[in-house]
Amino acid sequence: MKEVTIYTDGACSGNPGPGGWAAVLLYGDVTKEISGGEAVTTNNKMELTAAVEALKILKEPCRVNLHSDSAYLINCFKEKWYVGWEKNGWVNSKKEPVANKELWQELLRLYRTHDVHWVKVKGHAGVHWNERCDELARAAMPK
């Protein structure tokens, strides 16, 4: 399996408000940057979209180290929240519908295609590729 490193980030001006997402994919000597935005969205939706879009680019199953500063994203996988959500019909522990269900379902499909290792990084702490993702996500926010 190819080994790919991915950094992702989401940004939002207001919550909800205009938002952007970005990812940087690193494979050998190749660096690929992707980003996009939505006029009305949430920060969590942008964080998830960044991960989904990055994993969707991979053309074959890969070993992935996915770095994010989103506790929402990382904790879902590290603490296996999705297991309960799937078992309970996409209802969370508060008996409410899981927010961003479609994005989580797509992310789980991609997660199960690849061998993903989730890495939490501290945001705005000088981690080069995390900072680059933040720049790209902010630049992708609709004006």
Rank of each mutant, 00 (worst) to 15 (best):
W81K: 01
R138T: 11
Y7F: 14
L66M: 10
A71I: 05
R63D: 07
G20S: 11
V52W: 00
Q105I: 06
V64R: 03
A39T: 15
K59H: 13
V119I: 14
G17V: 05
G84W: 07
V98W: 02
N43I: 04
V83A: 11
G37Q: 05
K59N: 15
C133K: 04
K95G: 08
K94M: 08
V64K: 07
N65W: 14
K80P: 14
K94F: 03
Y72V: 08
K95V: 07
W118S: 00
L73Q: 10
L26Y: 09
C12W: 07
K56S: 10
P142E: 07
A51T: 07
A22H: 08
V83G: 10
A140I: 06
L25P: 09
P142K: 10
W129E: 11
R138M: 07
S93C: 01
G37H: 06
C76M: 04
T5P: 06
V52D: 01
K95Y: 10
N92D: 15
V127A: 08
R138Y: 00
Y27K: 15
A51F: 03
D115Q: 14
L55T: 12
M1D: 12
E38T: 02
G14L: 07
W81C: 03
L136A: 01
Y82E: 06
V83H: 09
N75L: 06
A137F: 00
G126A: 12
L107K: 02
E38N: 11
V121P: 04
G123R: 00
D69C: 09
G20P: 05
K87M: 09
R112G: 10
P18N: 10
S35H: 05
E47C: 08
L48D: 05
A71E: 13
A39F: 11
M1C: 07
I74H: 07
L136T: 00
E33S: 08
K80W: 11
A125D: 08
E131S: 02
L66F: 09
E38C: 04
G126L: 11
C133V: 06
V52E: 01
W104R: 06
M46C: 03
Y27L: 14
K2N: 15
Y82M: 03
E96N: 14
W129A: 10
A71R: 14
A11T: 09
S35L: 02
E96M: 13
V98F: 03
W90S: 04
K87W: 03
T42H: 04
L25N: 05
K122T: 13
T49E: 02
W118R: 04
R132Y: 00
E60K: 15
P97E: 02
V83F: 05
N88T: 01
R63F: 13
G126Y: 08
L55N: 12
A99K: 15
N130Q: 08
K59L: 07
K2D: 14
A22M: 09
K95P: 03
E106Y: 02
V64N: 12
A71L: 04
A140P: 08
L103C: 01
W118N: 00
F77I: 11
S93N: 12
E135Q: 15
L73M: 06
R109G: 09
W90I: 11
G14D: 09
A22Q: 10
G123N: 05
A99M: 11
W90L: 10
H67C: 08
L26K: 13
I74V: 13
